[in-house]
Design a protein around this nucleic acid. Structure first.
Lengths: 244, 244
DNA sequence: TGCCGTGATGTTGTGCACAACATAAGAAAT
DNA sequence: ATTTCTTATGTTGTGCACAACATCACGGCA
C-alpha cells in the first residue's frame, strides 16, 4: 500500500522539511514587503505562528541573517535590513553580471516544456496587465526570475543569483512605493516587464540562452537606472520644498 | 584612564564577537583541511573547546552549513561536505568569472601601502619557496586571496568571491594531497603561484586592476585544469591496475 | 528647567535536560 | 548460516528557564 504523499503539508515533516518551509516562508515575506525594511520581528511571535519553540525559529533567522536579509541585535531585536543607495548600486552592479552569466555558463537544454513555461508566464502578464496590483507584480516577477534562472544548470550560480535577487528586489519595490506617482510608475514598469518577458521568451524559443542573458541584463540595469533617477528626482523635489 | 584594548582576546567580547571568532576559526580549519571533507564534527567537543555550551556552537554550524561547508543530519552528525568533480567544475566556472570582476567592478584606489602589501607577499613567496610546506602554501595562498579581493570595493562581490574561494580551495588541496607525486606537484604549483603573485603585483604597481583580474582569472582556471587532468590520470592509472 | 542615575520592561543569547532519529550490534527464529 | 527484529548507543533537534543586554520612563538633584 502506498503512503499518501503530501508535498506541502505542515504535518508529518522532518526537522529539515520544517526548517525549509519556515525559511522559504519568511524569505518570501521579506521580499514581498510583508516585513518591510526596518521592521522588527519577534522570535516569540514567529514561534507561536509556526507552532514551535524559539529554537528552530532562531535557526532560520541565523540563515536569513547570513544572507543579509536580517540583523539580530542582543537586547534590541531582529530587524529587516535596509540598503542605502550606494550599497544597492553595488549589488545591482554584480547582479547584472550574474544575469548575463546565467545565459552563458552551463546552459540547460531548452526543451518544449520549458519553452511552454516561458509562454505561460508571458500570458500571465498579458492577463494581468489591466489590474496593476503591486503584490501580483512582485509575485510574477519572482516566478519569472526562477524560470529564467533555470536556464543554467550551474547550481552555485543559481544560488548566488537568487540571493542577490531577494536582496535587491524588495528594496526596489520599497523605493518605488514611496515615490509620488507610484501607481502610474508601476503600470509603466509592468508594461516594460511584459516586453522583457516577451523578448526573453522569444530568445528561449530560438534556443539562444546567451541572448536571453543579455536581454535580462539590460533590463535589470535599466530598471535600476529608472528607479534610481526617479528616487533622486524625488529627493531633489523634497529638498527644494524645504528651501522654499 | 583608558581601558586596555585587546582586539583578539578570547575574554570580554560580546556575543557577536565570540560568534565571529568561532566562525572564522572553524572556517579556517575546514579550508586548511584540519577538518577534512567527509570528517565528522561533534558539537559537544567544539562546545568544550571554546568554553561554551552547544547553543552558540550550533549558531556557527548553521551559518557554515548555509555556505555549503557543512551538512548536519539529525541523529547522524555534522560532516564536512565533499564536492565531486562535476560540481567542483561548476564552482570554478563561476569563480573565474568573479575573479575577473574583482578587477573590473568598483576598483579600489591603489595607493602605495597597498602596493607594498603585494610586494610583501611576493617576498614571502620568495623566502618560502625552498621549504614546500603544504600548510604554509595554503596560508599564503589565502592571505594573497584576501589581498587580491581588496582590489574591489564592491562588498557583495567580495563576500561571494570569498565564499567560492573557501569552497574550492580545500577541495583542490585535498585532491592534490591524494596524488602520487604530491611533493613535486606542490613544488611546481608553488613556483607557478610565485609567478602569479609577481605578475599581479606588477599589474597593481601599474595601477591596472583589470589586468590583475585577467591574470588571476587565467591562473585560477589553469590551476584547476592541471589538478583536474592530474586527478583523471591518477584515476586512469588506478583503473588500469585493477584490470591487470 | 535640564541632567544624570536608576529601575522597569522587553528582547535576544545561553545553558541544560530531554525528545527524535539513525546506526550498529546482538539475539532469536527459520 | 542467514535473516529479521530488538536493543543499546551516540548524535542532532527541541523546549524551556534564565542570563545578558539595550532602551525608555521616571524621579532625584542641581
Amino acid at each position: 500500500m502506498l503512503d499518501r504523499i503530501e508535498p506541502t503539508t505542515p504535518a508529518d515533516e522532518g526537522a529539515r522539511g520544517r526548517f525549509d518551509r519556515i525559511y522559504q516562508t519568511l524569505r518570501m515575506r521579506i521580499c514581498l514587503l510583508d516585513y518591510a525594511p526596518g521592521s522588527r520581528l519577534r522570535e516569540e511571535d514567529l514561534a507561536e505562528e509556526f507552532g514551535v519553540s524559539r529554537t528552530p525559529i532562531r535557526r532560520v533567522l541565523v540563515k536569513l541573517e547570513a544572507e543579509g536579509l536580517l540583523r539580530s541585535m542582543h537586547g534590541v531585536g531582529t530587524i529587516v535590513t535596509d540598503i542605502e543607495a550606494d550599497e544597492l548600486a553595488q549589488v545591482y552592479e554584480l547582479r547584472v553580471e550574474l544575469a548575463e552569466l546565467v545565459g552563458k555558463l552551463s546552459p540547460a537544454v531548452v526543451d518544449e516544456p520549458m519553452v511552454e513555461r516561458f509562454r505561460q508566464i508571458r500570458e500571465s502578464c498579458d492577463q494581468m496587465v489591466r489590474k496593476a496590483d503591486p503584490r501580483e507584480f512582485a509575485r510574477i516577477n519572482m516566478e519569472f526570475f526562477h524560470l529564467f534562472n533555470s536556464l543554467t544548470t550551474n547550481q552555485p550560480l543559481r544560488e548566488l543569483s537568487e540571493r542577490l535577487y531577494y536582496q535587491t528586489t524588495r528594496i526596489w519595490l520599497k523605493t518605488a512605493s514611496r515615490l509620488k506617482d507610484y501607481e502610474e510608475l508601476l503600470v509603466d514598469e509592468f508594461i516594460i516587464f511584459q516586453r522583457e518577458v516577451a523578448d526573453i521568451t522569444e530568445a528561449v524559443e530560438q534556443r539562444d540562452p546567451a541572448a536571453a542573458g543579455h536581454i535580462r541584463r539590460a533590463h535589470i540595469a535599466m530598471s535600476f537606472g529608472r528607479i534610481r533617477r526617479a528616487a533622486e528626482a524625488s529627493i531633489e523635489m523634497t529638498a527644494s520644498k524645504v528651501w522654499q
